[in-house]
């Protein structure tokens, strides 16, 4: 199996705080990986580096063998738009847009026509069990429903990698479970690689393996044990 994402010697500091101090990570195609660790350990920073959101101070990130940390912001933005999908903890949906329009936004950004975008967006809402909620606005949805809309939006462009940052962080256990189950089913079906940052073991348990970040280091023993 080839690595779809490969990070070598990542270092990243914010002001005087070192968030990452030399991290190596390799993620295989189709793998679901959980990044865990105490808060402030640098797990979100690691996700941002892997996704080409932030550029590491040192080290490289390669996507499908191509280094992405050397690309400029425009090129990385394009990469994120076409090859990556993102789900966050909350507040990622545009409050003025309907669920359908929210899902359609990435397609429009990719140059899709309005009509086609709407059709595909509504397909994905259906897959996430949101039939009948297409015309609701985010504030008219429950937390779990809103997260499912966000997942639909992340997957509608058929990304190679889905990055999820605490996707269940603001949900109760039952809603969290429903969201994770449907997300895992869909990505397994599509063979999408998933990198999920979480501090919740029950969410991490949906992954194939986990990576522990502690004080800016990845626990070596585990990286190899897995």
């Amino acid at each position: 199996m080839t690595a779809i994402l490969e990070a070598r010697g990542l270092r990243k500091s914010f002001d005087r705080t070192e968030a990452l101090r030399g991290v190596d990570v390799s993620i295989r195609r189709g793998e679901i990986v959980a990044i865990m660790g105490p808060s402030g350990s640098g797990k979100s920073t690691l996700l941002h580096c892997l996704a080409g959101v932030t550029v590491p101070d040192a080290g490289t990130v390669a996507f499908n063998g191509t280094p992405i940390s050397t690309l400029d912001e425009t090129a990385r933005g394009k990469l994120r738009l076409t090859d990556f999908g993102f789900v966050f903890q909350f507040g990622q949906l545009l409050p003025e847009l309907t669920a359908l329009d929210n899902v359609a936004v990435p397609l429009l950004l990719a140059g899709e026509r309005r009509g086609t975008a709407a059709t595909r967006a509504s397909e994905w809402l259906g897959r996430l069990g949101l039939d009948g909620k297409a015309q609701r606005r985010p504030q008219e949805l429950s937390g779990g429903e809103a997260q499912r809309v966000a997942i639909a939006r992340a997957l509608v462009t058929k990304p190679a990698v889905l990055f999820a940052d605490e996707p269940t962080g603001s949900l109760d256990s039952l809603a969290a479970e429903a969201v994770m189950r449907i997300m895992i089913d869909l990505v397994r079906e599509a063979g999408t690689t998933v990198v999920v940052v979480t501090h919740d073991p029950r969410t991490a348990a949906y992954a194939d393996r986990d990576i522990i970040v502690r004080d800016g280091h990845v626990s070596v023993a585990l990286g190899e044990a897995a």
Partner: peptide
């Protein structure tokens, strides 16, 4: 700024 920032993170170009 949060939601616009997230959109930008998802790859929406600044020009948009």
């Amino acid at each position: 700024r949060r939601v616009l920032g997230l959109l930008r993170l998802m790859g929406m170009p600044v020009s948009h």
